[in-house]
Simulated scan of single mutants.
Amino acid sequence: MSQQPNADVVRKCLESYIAQDRAAAEKLIAESFVFTSPQDDRIDRAAFFERCFPTADRLRWQEIRTVVPAGGDGVFIMYEYELKTGERHCNVELSTVRDGQLVETQVFFGGRLPKS
């Protein structure tokens, strides 16, 4: 895989989720990938693709707000989204990228945002 800046890898991975482009996501997510969120405790790549990846259909929209390096191999990404229920949220993720692929993602759920 050609090397691209870690922030680009993280951005492209989230974009593949939004588009539900699993083939693109599989290229960006390492076989050793580990995913953690308030609902998932260090699940592996297979569990991530089974449980988490297919959930984009619950969204009305999602927009990336910020993607910044976090030192070393880390990247912070902040995004806002609205569920089909009308609830809006803002989350932050810390991802680790090595050799052009995500090896770990930790999701930090934010609270509800006011409706626009």
Rank of each mutant, 00 (worst) to 15 (best):
A25F: 00
I29F: 01
I29N: 06
I29A: 00
I29T: 03
A30T: 03
V34R: 03
F35G: 00
S37P: 01
S37D: 06
Q39T: 11
D41K: 15
I43G: 07
D44H: 05
R45E: 06
R45K: 02
A46K: 08
A46S: 10
A47G: 09
F48D: 03
F49Y: 05
F49R: 06
E50M: 07
C52W: 09
P54L: 06
P54F: 02
T55Q: 14
T55I: 11
A56E: 00
R60W: 09
Q62W: 14
E63F: 15
T66M: 15
V67R: 05
V67L: 06
V68K: 10
G71F: 04
D73N: 12
G74Q: 08
V75H: 00
V75D: 01
V75I: 08
F76L: 12
F76M: 13
F76V: 12
M78G: 11
Y79D: 13
Y79C: 11
Y81K: 15
Y81D: 08
E82P: 00
K84T: 08
T85Y: 08
T85A: 09
G86R: 02
E87Y: 15
R88Y: 08
H89F: 13
H89R: 15
V92C: 12
E93Q: 13
S95D: 11
D99Q: 09
D99H: 07
G100F: 05
G100H: 01
Q101P: 07
V103H: 02
V103I: 09
T105K: 13
T105Q: 11
Q106I: 15
F108A: 04
F109C: 10
G110E: 03
G111A: 14
L113W: 05
